[in-house]
Design a protein around this nucleic acid. Sequence first.
DNA 1: CTGAAAGCGCTAACAT
DNA 2: ATGTTAGCGCTTTCAG
Lengths: 342, 342
Amino acid sequence: MRKKTVSIKNIAEHLNVSVTTVSFVLNGKAKEKHISKILTQKVLDYAKLVDYRPNQIAQSLRTGKSKILVFMVEDISNHFFSKLARIIEDIAYEKGYKVIFCSNENQDTKSLELIDLFKNRQVDGFIIVPSPGIKSKIAELVEENHPIVLLDRYFADLKCNSVVIDNHQATFDATNHLISNNYKNIAFITTDSEQMQMQNRLEGYESAVLGHNLKSHVLKIPYREASDGKSQSIIRAFIEKNNDVDAVFFSTNYLTQSGLEAFIEIDRNLVHKMGIVTFDDNELFKIYSPTITAVYQPLEEIGNKLMEVMLKLLKQKDVRETSENIILNAELKVRESSIMRI
Amino acid sequence: MRKKTVSIKNIAEHLNVSVTTVSFVLNGKAKEKHISKILTQKVLDYAKLVDYRPNQIAQSLRTGKSKILVFMVEDISNHFFSKLARIIEDIAYEKGYKVIFCSNENQDTKSLELIDLFKNRQVDGFIIVPSPGIKSKIAELVEENHPIVLLDRYFADLKCNSVVIDNHQATFDATNHLISNNYKNIAFITTDSEQMQMQNRLEGYESAVLGHNLKSHVLKIPYREASDGKSQSIIRAFIEKNNDVDAVFFSTNYLTQSGLEAFIEIDRNLVHKMGIVTFDDNELFKIYSPTITAVYQPLEEIGNKLMEVMLKLLKQKDVRETSENIILNAELKVRESSIMRI
DNA sequence: CTGAAAGCGCTAACAT
DNA sequence: ATGTTAGCGCTTTCAG
């Protein structure tokens, strides 16, 4: 049955030394503890021979460290998050950390529950896309000295490390790009979410449009309806009603999908006439016809920064020594759908 | 600083009872152990008051169970796997399990390393998409009585639970669908991978083509080149050379992407003339122009079965009591790209 | 009905 | 230079 697993004790007994000695050697403290070269080597050799693997659970219980990080996002199956997950995973593994992923569905109750769960698991650090109402919980975590980095959003007047992108600037630039391509009636299709990053995206659009004395056309799809799959018909109705709209800016990737479907339903040719820009890139936008202009969030950079901050936090005794609020710039991937086609 | 966390001992001391009693009550064994209703209630109330949370690490060390499952796939950022991850996650959480995801990149060394790593973490079960050369490791895990379910592939003559789809049937049906839509020169673009599921896909295609006395056109892209991003030019060269090909069947989703790019490069109109079928669906194929016919692997069903088997294994003393090799059927989502357009 | 105590495997302060 | 030992927090056997 289950092959007996070797413990430090086994090794100690076999070699007629104490567990302490073995532990020291195995933890590379032989020098520091003045253990003779010969004994050190004997332990090392034997450990290798029997393929000794420390029991991480016991180690964790003793040290209070689990070498596990949590990556909590809205939905791990979302393209943006799963790509990011992969980047995080790679960096973490390299540093000896494992990553547990979980989806909070942007719900406070689920977030709260998950956070508590993982606190009891002694995870070493949290990377979190916070749902709107968990500011106090985050504050508590910081207070309790847990390494934590917020992603994608943060809370105003809460001192907590974060990595976000400049949403306002991104939509401002992208909207201006549409304007400079001669689009006159640019609609902004978004959700009714109050989340800061969504607000910022909206503001970026509005300041660009108003800055050129253009009319603002905003469609806010209720969050509930969006997940219900009703967004397609809502967008269709909106476009049919506002038939002067000549370009659409989608504030998030799942809306783009519904939007494109809606356009095709209305008129197969519409996607070729309408200016289109979307937030969040996707490989398939490169091969869609027309290819779709997208605001690309720099995944590699986000992942790297995230882990850079996290690893730094992990090394500190007090997490409040560090306070970094990193704001990265998105990149506009200009493709056919936003180029003047008249 | 870190808020002191309440332990069973704290509770026991506060109530002047023993830790045993507290532990029994908290584990719902009050009845069984004949602990008085009044004491039971007192413990429960106090535990609630101080918001007691058991330290999972200590619990794990003692019981040998971690309530953690591992989901090891080729690449967690791949659409198919991340969608599946989400389904697994939801079911697992409901049953009190957490899930650690990891990517083995289809490499044996990485797989082996990860498996050992997690064995030391006392994870309770493994769901694995095995890389080609880890059959003996899997056998070892089974031998050691670890719950394990293979996904997407399995090893011939290795007794181990698995959930796969009938790849042969899927490509056979899809190829016949193309044939019945009057395509005469159907190419099959795949990788040179020796993996069983890829072989089966190829065989399904070949038996359909040969069954209708049609010519088989197979392009095997070396796995290395595929990840290098060279597949696009290889496909392009292949299509330009074999200009009698009137339909293409892509054996896996990342090839489809390169394929579509190649088609567009050759001639913007080609995608509208060429018959196209792809393995693995993607939301965007529904809105591509033309919409792309795809072999859809039933994600929900796969996830459910996977967890059904896993949960059963988790309950058994000996994993070899159960031996299920579940084969599910894929579904052909017929869309515009495979319908006769002449 | 309740409690004492062993022990899961490991680390590290404190002996010797 | 090496060993003894006390826990980390929990479960569970065995004794009252």
